[in-house]
Design a protein around this nucleic acid. Structure first.
Length: 202
DNA sequence: CACCCGATTATCT
DNA sequence: GATAATCGGGTGT
């Protein structure tokens, strides 16, 4: 058991709703990781929704392939992909019933526990740069392709997502997604207002 | 099969 | 601001 009594693991029904809604509702939730014998807790502060074949910016836009098959699989599972040949990025599969595919990219988190391990994995990086980007999140959590297709709703899973009873509610800012060239106008990026851990502007 | 480029980041200048 | 690192999919030959 990773989490204490007051934190509740999100059930599969949480992820069985529209990808955009789940992306917003995941803000403020906690990710518990026991991967690689390390105990890490982070709070989600920035997400992006990626849809089915109708969303040209989504990996699912060209249909189901070996790389992206998790997006077509059961909701509440991980979709981990290799970005730019270097970075492992974490998505949570979410979609309403009747939709073929969809996932929520975890773009940034606020580290709460396991700072020593995160520092070790992130190297010489300091401060907000520890986890204020999707590739940084993957590295901090110790993710690799081996962690694709992992269920997030099981007590004994190395990765779980829970409520955060101690987190005060913050305003959600809605904007366009980062780093894409297609379907650029869809307002499917969400982050907590005034949170220091969101991706900095370039 | 070759070429292009991406849901990125660290490290230069 | 610019660029390298690095790999897998898309596109066209």
């Amino acid at each position: 058991m990773n989490q204490s009594m007051s934190e509740t693991i999100l059930p599969t029904s949480f992820f069985q709703r529209s990808t955009e809604l789940v992306a917003q509702e995941l803000l403020g939730k906690l990710i518990f990781s026991t991967l690689d014998n390390a105990y890490i807790v982070v709070r989600i502060v920035e997400t992006e929704a990626y849809g089915d074949e109708h969303d040209a910016a989504s990996h699912a836009a060209f249909g189901k392939k070996k790389r992206n098959d998790a997006m077509f699989g059961p909701v509440g599972h991980t979709y981990v992909y290799l970005s730019y040949g270097i970075h492992f990025c974490l998505n949570i599969v979410a979609r309403e019933s009747g939709v073929t595919s969809g996932g929520v990219l975890i773009r940034a988190v606020e580290p709460l526990k396991g700072l020593q391990t995160i520092h070790k994995r992130r190297g010489s990086v300091e401060g907000f740069n520890l986890t204020n980007g999707p590739g940084k999140v993957g590295q901090a959590l110790g993710l690799g392709l081996a962690h694709n297709h992992i269920p997030l709703f099981c007590q004994n899973s190395p990765l779980t997502v829970t409520t955060d009873p101690h987190c005060s509610s913050s305003s959600i800012i809605k904007s366009t997604r980062i780093g894409i060239s297609r379907n650029v106008h869809a307002p499917w990026r969400f982050y907590l207002k005034d949170n220091q851990w969101v991706t900095p502007k370039r």
